[in-house]
C-alpha cells in the first residue's frame, strides 16, 4: 500500500515537471517531436531508477549524521551531509557514463535510440532533483527509494510525451507571432500544471476516510443525523484544496 501511494504521489501529485519544474531545459528543448521525446523520457526513467537508490545507499551509509558508525564507534558522530551535492552529482555523472558504455556494448539498437540523449541527462535537473528530494524527504527503505526513482521518471516521461504531442498539433494552429515556439509552450505547460493540480486531492483520500469514520462512530454514539458526515466531507475537501500549497 505504501508503495502504491508513493507511486501515484510521485507520478501525479508531485510530478517533476508540473509541480517542481525539474528538467525543464531538456523538456522544452527536446519536445518538438514525439519520437525523440519518448527516447529522452525512457532514458530519464532508466537513469532515475538507477541513481536514486544508489544515492540512497550513499546517503544512508556515508553522508547522514552518524551514518559512518559501521566503520567503528569513533566515526559515529561524523556528519558529512554537506558533501552530498558533490557525491550525488559524481554518482550521476559516473552512472550515466557507465550506462552509456554498457548499453553500447550489449544493445546497439537501444544505444542508437537513447545514445544521443544520455550525455544530456547528466545535467538534467530532474535526475539530481530526484536524489535531493529523496534525501530531504527521508525515504525509509531501499525499495521505496527504488520506487520513488522509477515513478518520478514515469511522471517526467508522461509530461514530455504530452507536451510533445501538443506541440506537434499546434504547428498547424494560428498562434500569435510573438508567442510562437517558446512562449506558447510555457503557457501550455502552465495550463497542464493547473490540470495536474487537481490530482492534489487524490492523496488526502486516505485521511478523509479516517476522519469520516471517526465522525461516523461519534454519530453512532450521539445518534444524530447523517448530514454531519457530508459537512465533514466538504470541510476536508476544502482543506485539501488549500493544502497543496
Amino acid at each position: 500500500m505504501e508503495h502504491v501511494e508513493l507511486f501515484f504521489k510521485s507520478v501525479f501529485v508531485d510530478n517533476m515537471v508540473f509541480a517542481y519544474f525539474l528538467g525543464m531545459c531538456s523538456y522544452l528543448a527536446v519536445s518538438k517531436k514525439v519520437s525523440t521525446a519518448v527516447g529522452l523520457g525512457a532514458a530519464v526513467i532508466f537513469v532515475l531508477t538507477v541513481t536514486v537508490p544508489l544515492n540512497w545507499l550513499l546517503d544512508q551509509y556515508i553522508l547522514q549524521e552518524g551514518a559512518l558508525s559501521w566503520l567503528g564507534a569513533e566515526f559515529a558522530d561524523y556528519d558529512l551531509s554537506f558533501l552530498s551535492f558533490i557525491l550525488f552529482i559524481a554518482t550521476i555523472a559516473t552512472m550515466v557514463q557507465l550506462v552509456e558504455i554498457v548499453v553500447e556494448r550489449f544493445s546497439p539498437s537501444l544505444y542508437n535510440s537513447l545514445g544521443i540523449f544520455l550525455p544530456l541527462i547528466a545535467v538534467n535537473c530532474a535526475i539530481l532533483g530526484g536524489s535531493l528530494f529523496m534525501q530531504s524527504r527521508e525515504i525509509e527503505s531501499f525499495t521505496l527509494a527504488l520506487n520513488y526513482g522509477f515513478s518520478s521518471g514515469i511522471g517526467w516521461f508522461l509530461a514530455i510525451l504530452a507536451i510533445a504531442a501538443i506541440r506537434e498539433k499546434i504547428r498547424y494552429s494560428n498562434v500569435p507571432a510573438p508567442l510562437r515556439g517558446l512562449g506558447i509552450t510555457f503557457i501550455i505547460t502552465g495550463l497542464m500544471a493547473i490540470g495536474f493540480m487537481s490530482f492534489g486531492g487524490m492523496l488526502t483520500g486516505g485521511d478523509e476516510e479516517i476522519e469520516v469514520s471517526e465522525v461516523r462512530s461519534a454519530e453512532v454514539e450521539k445518534t444524530s443525523e447523517l448530514n454531519t458526515e457530508n459537512i465533514a466531507q466538504n470541510e476536508t475537501l476544502e482543506v485539501s484544496e488549500i493544502t497543496p500549497q
Partner: peptide, 16 residues
Amino acid sequence: PPMALIVVGIIIWVQR
C-alpha cells in the same frame, strides 16, 4: 506554481 510558467510566457510575449 503553474502561474510562474504563465508569467514567463507573458514576459516572452512582451519581449518578442
